[in-house]
Amino acid sequence: MSLHDELRRFIVSELLFDHDAVAVDDDTDLLGLGLVDSLGLARLVAHLEEEVGMTVAYDDLVPENFATLAQLLAFVERKRAVHP
């Protein structure tokens, strides 16, 4: 599974609980929907650290990195480029 598909799977299954009222695409507003609230952010960060294998620093915890799937993917790829 590509990183994009894996992150999308995590959002749909673990943050949205597969609830089908919302379709998640690259530009879905994850913050506005409340998917990335304090609980969702903690789960997402744990997933990135434990499953994707990257380190998320306090300075990375800004809305721009988590607002949409596209922004999340860009954030992860940027971090991986610096610390492969």
Partner: peptide
């Protein structure tokens, strides 16, 4: 804003 609340530094 709800979009800021979860993020400690912002």
């Amino acid at each position: 804003p709800d979009a800021i609340a979860p993020f400690p530094q912002p």
